[in-house]
Design a protein around this nucleic acid. Structure first.
Lengths: 158, 158
DNA sequence: TTTTTAGTTCGAGAAAAAAAGAACTAAAAA
DNA sequence: TTTTTAGTTCTTTTTTTCTCGAACTAAAAA
């Protein structure tokens, strides 16, 4: 049983920042759980607390909690004498998400490369060249991003 | 009236690469128009040609053509004595899309920063510090990406 | 002037995604 | 052993997104 007093954010704030987070194609309930855990103090909550604060269904909480656990965005700890799990954001691991973001560039890079291959036998050297360049560019960018992440992590360790 | 013979890609290929493009949250018809224009030779088509090749409704073609025109992904040219517009991809301008992609990092950076501000009065210095760092990191990353794009463009000009 | 062309716009319907609710389960507590 | 707790799973409902078709429009052609 938790005795320490919790400081919940104002619901309005969670809504506002939740909407902000939706802009990155994150579903509403997912966004609100994320933001809530980002704002509450101490920075962890039980399933029940999340559900009651947000006033959403258990199944939605379950769904997104599990999604975030799988993604590695979330983790939980327990307290002895208390069966509940207390969920918190693994903020450190957001870096992994960035790596994943770099994946989009690989997707588009591969798309371009595939198109380039398809065109090989056609005679529009200009377009072909443009495609080749684009594929290269997106690859360059994806790799560049990886480097940026590494660079930052290194700098942080000093 | 266009007389030059067109080389259309195989429909299967457009489907396959279209599906690949859907992976980046692009709607089916949008993806297929994009891929078709990427593969056809010469690299432009009329509204009608797009519609007939893809076997979709005029309204869908209209919708995504206009979306792409607004986005700047697409442009068109005309030929004298021919009322039709011939649409082609503005591949050069994909760079702008990348800039836009960097925007996502600003979104998340701002989200973190907002959360950081909200927490100022709470006493979990560790979490607060982590948030501040994350905001900083995403900003770093967004800016780093801009630099990468600029770097590439500069290198290309040589 | 009438007709055709090259699209656009406006519902309506289908399909997919998100959320809800109710029934269930496994482990712990009583 | 029975009950409660802490969730999970499955089905249904709601919402949103995508696509279509039919009616419309503005400019050009006849």
């Amino acid at each position: 049983m938790e005795t320490k007093e919790k400081h919940y954010p104002e619901k309005q704030v969670v809504e506002r920042l939740g909407v902000q987070m939706e802009k990155m194609n994150t579903p509403p309930v997912h966004s609100r759980i994320f933001v809530l855990l980002l704002l509450v103090d101490p920075p962890y909550l039980s399933f029940e607390e999340i559900q009651e604060y947000l006033q959403v269904s258990k199944s939605s909480v379950s769904k997104y909690i599990n999604a975030m656990l799988e993604q590695g965005t979330l983790d939980y700890k327990t307290f002895s004498g208390d069966r509940k799990r207390y969920f918190y954001l693994k903020l450190d691991d957001l870096l992994d998400k960035i790596y994943a973001g770099a994946t989009k560039f690989s997707i588009i890079s591969e798309l371009m490369q595939n198109c380039y291959r398809e065109r090989q036998n056609l005679d529009s050297p200009d377009v072909n060249e443009q495609l080749r360049e684009l594929a290269e560019f997106f690859k360059f960018l994806g790799e560049g991003m990886e480097n940026l992440v590494n660079e930052y992590m290194k700098k942080k360790q000093e």
